[in-house]
Amino acid sequence: MNERSRHPSWTHEIAEKIRKAKLYNLFEHLIANILVLLISFIVIVALYKLGEDVVNLLVSRAFDPLKHETFQTVFGGIMTLLIAMEFKHSILVVTKRQQNIIQVKTVILVSLLALARKFIILDIHALEAAKIAALALALVALGAVYWLMRERDAWNMEHGRQEEG
């Protein structure tokens, strides 16, 4: 055997790397599609549960949006749906190959939605002030990070640079 047949050429190595990358992309695409299906199922179940809660409140004539408990039930369910749909949307972006990974801004946005939901369903009488302050601080910090990232993106667009992540 000669030296060339024992050591693959650099073109063969590149071709092998491309083949492996395509296999991984297919795997990633499959996982993303499975996640979309699972989250879609969760959205359907959450929508059903929300509808059931609203109907039960209407039938029992207890549907008074000014009551804190009713407000918590209805808007807590709505926020849960919004969070799940935002997750699904961020995964759909990946499956459509508009981006390779979930963007940090999306994760921060979903976190902001989750904290907003927490404040909506929060029973202020059952939680210590320090925990409420910690949640508020987390909300402000995430909001500041999201705002800074938007400013960075605007600056990058203005100066013709690509987004870094």
Rank of each mutant, 00 (worst) to 15 (best):
L23N: 08
Y24M: 09
Y24T: 14
Y24S: 02
Y24I: 10
L26V: 04
L26E: 09
L26P: 01
E28G: 02
H29M: 09
H29E: 05
L30Q: 13
L30H: 12
I31C: 10
A32Q: 03
A32F: 13
A32M: 11
A32E: 13
N33Y: 15
L35R: 06
L35T: 10
V36P: 03
V36R: 08
I39W: 12
S40L: 11
I42T: 00
I42V: 09
I42E: 10
V43G: 03
V43Q: 04
V45R: 15
V45A: 06
A46M: 00
A46V: 02
L47H: 00
Y48I: 00
Y48Q: 00
Y48A: 01
Y48P: 00
K49M: 09
K49F: 14
L50P: 03
G51K: 04
G51W: 14
G51C: 01
G51P: 07
G51Q: 02
G51M: 11
E52R: 15
E52M: 08
D53I: 09
V54A: 15
V54F: 14
V54M: 01
V55C: 07
N56D: 15
N56C: 14
L57T: 05
L57E: 14
L58G: 05
V59F: 15
S60M: 05
S60L: 03
R61N: 09
R61F: 08
R61H: 08
R61S: 06
A62G: 06
A62T: 15
F63C: 12
F63P: 02
D64Y: 11
D64P: 06
P65V: 13
L66F: 11
L66T: 14
K67L: 11
K67M: 10
K67T: 08
H68K: 14
H68P: 10
E69V: 03
E69I: 07
E69M: 04
T70K: 09
T70V: 15
F71P: 05
F71M: 11
F71W: 05
Q72F: 06
Q72M: 12
T73H: 01
T73M: 04
V74K: 14
F75N: 10
F75W: 15
G76C: 08
G76P: 13
G77D: 00
I78P: 04
M79V: 12
M79S: 07
M79C: 08
M79P: 02
M79E: 05
T80P: 03
T80N: 06
L81P: 01
L81V: 11
L82Q: 11
I83S: 07
F87E: 15
F87C: 05
K88C: 01
K88V: 02
H89E: 07
S90E: 03
S90M: 11
S90C: 03
S90R: 05
I91A: 07
I91T: 04
I91Q: 02
I91V: 12
L92R: 10
L92F: 13
V93P: 02
V94Y: 08
T95L: 14
T95V: 15
K96A: 09
K96E: 15
R97H: 12
Q98S: 13
Q98N: 10
